[in-house]
Each structure stands twice: as C-alpha cells, then as structure tokens.
Design a protein around this nucleic acid. Structure first.
Lengths: 137, 137
DNA sequence: CCCTAAATGTAGCAATGGCTACGGTTTCTT
DNA sequence: AAGAAACCGTAGCCATTGCTACATTTAGGG
C-alpha cells in the first residue's frame, strides 16, 4: 500500500509538470529567438512551434501572469529576469540531454527529436549522472 | 528555413504523442493490475494514477473506442490483443529505461520517477542505444 | 431477501492547448 | 500619405484531463 501511494504521488507530479513544460519550451524558444533575431514576436513563436498565433498569444498571456515574460499589445516579447534564468537552466539541461544521447550512440537527428521530449522529465540526479557520463574526471 | 521546418514538425509530433502517452500508461497499468489481482476495475486505475474514478472512466471509454480494451458497464476491464501487445512493448521499454538510468548512476527512487516521464519519448534508436549500454556484447 | 456499501456511470464545471474567422494595429511600400 | 501586408487580439469552437455532486448498479452482510 505504501508503495502504491508513492507511485500515485509520482504520477500526480508528472501531470502537474505539464503546464510547466510549456513554460519551459516557450522561454527557451524566446531566448533563442531574441539571441538570433534581436526580438521575439508572437509570429516567431507560432512558426517555431508550428501552431497558430492564437495559441501562442494565449500561452504568452499566461506566462505573463506567471511573470516569466513581458509584453504590450502589438509589441515584441521580452523575458523577465525570472524568465531568463529559467531559459538558461532549460537550455543547459537541453544541451546536456542532447549531447548525452549522442554520446551513447544515437544519431544527431534522433537525438534532437527525443531530447525535446525527454528533457522535461530529467531530474537533478539524472542530469548529474548524464553530466558525469559526458565529463568523467 | 529548412531547419526550422523540421523543428516544427518535431514539435507537432511531440504533441500528437500526448494522447498516446495516456493510452500507454493505461494499458501498462491494466496489464500490471490484472497480473497481480486477476482483474482490473476502474477504482484500481483511479488509485493507481491518483485521479478520480470519473477521469478513469472517460479515458477507459476512449481506449475502448480505440480497441485497446473491452468493458461492459459495471464490469472489469480486459485488454484486447492489440492492447496486450502495446502493454508488453511499453513494459519492456519502461524496464529498459529504468535499468538504464540506474546503470548510469541514478538511485532507484529517482530512476523510477524520471523513467515514468522519459519512457514515452524514447524512440527506437535511443532504446537500442540504452539496450546496448546495458548488454555490451 | 433486503439493504447498505462499494463501484460505476452521468451531468456539468475548469484549465490547457489546439483551431478558424474576423477585426484592429503597425509597418512597409509605393 | 494611402493602401497593402504583416502582425496581433478576441470570439467562439473542439478535445483532453482534471474535479464534485448526484444517480444507478452490483455485491455482501445481516
């Protein structure tokens, strides 16, 4: 019974992370787009994620409420300090996961696909293990 | 531009997999419960995933439409052949991911947590790489 | 056998993330 | 400066996955 309770808690955790995954993907994309194009617009994100601008707009508003970014109507999107920090963490984690998959023998194409999905579920310990694998001292 | 198009396709893929993940989790859980308790009821799944029986009931109906399982009102749930096959594949993949995480140095507790989330995003190549890592010939 | 408890089902609400259609702003081009 | 094109916002639809509250069915204990 005790074991079942733990399992349940785990599943709940997984689900609660879902909205968070979107936030992570968005701040990462925004940081990336700003870095390469100097500014990030709703359309850029729509293209990036291959969704309509409407979907992006709604999510951006939510992330604004969460104080991850700032926008004004018809204006570019900027990250708050909180958003930038999250973006940096996410980017680092993403790169580690990608490099790790390549290191264990997955070709770049597939590593890129799988890492997009995997990265959100990689906890601290797992990330540390991947890091160790990449840089054995 | 070409690269951006590929990336978009990838994201779309990821999203389309979401409903599928639920199906995978459910058939895996059903197979597991039947194996240990001889039958699987809606309440068992509700306990397993720590959600209400209502949520389970709705999802079970959807999976019935997808012919992964069979139910009759107020009756236990059974897997179809299709459902059983999926469950077996999912279970195998799950075990490989779990063992792999442990093998790279993640403790069991964290490996169990992360593997639940990661497993759905592990493609054929990545799974093969994990298998190679576990059983080097 | 009946009556209650447990299990299921149904109705209806919320949040998230998709969409199209339509209308309002900004910006660029002529 | 005017008009077109690009961009953005809003309304309103759908599906999924949560929920509570209430109704129904099944199964067991008296």
């Amino acid at each position: 019974m005790e074991k079942e309770k733990k399992r349940s808690a785990r599943f709940r955790q997984t689900r609660n992370h879902h909205a968070n995954e979107t936030a992570e993907d968005y701040v990462e994309a925004i940081a990336e787009i700003i870095e390469t194009s100097n500014e990030c617009r709703v359309v850029d994100l729509a293209r990036h994620f291959a969704v309509s601008h409407v979907t992006v707009s709604r999510i951006v508003n939510r992330l604004k409420d969460e104080e991850l970014l700032e926008t004004r109507p018809y204006r570019p999107i900027t990250l708050t300090t909180k958003g930038s920090k999250l973006a940096r963490r996410v980017k680092e984690r993403h790169e580690i996961v990608l490099d790790f998959l390549i290191a264990i023998g997955v070709d770049r194409r597939n590593a890129e696909i799988d890492s997009e999905g995997i990265e959100h579920h990689v906890g601290k310990q797992t990330l540390a293990a991947m890091r160790r694998f990449l840089k054995p001292k």
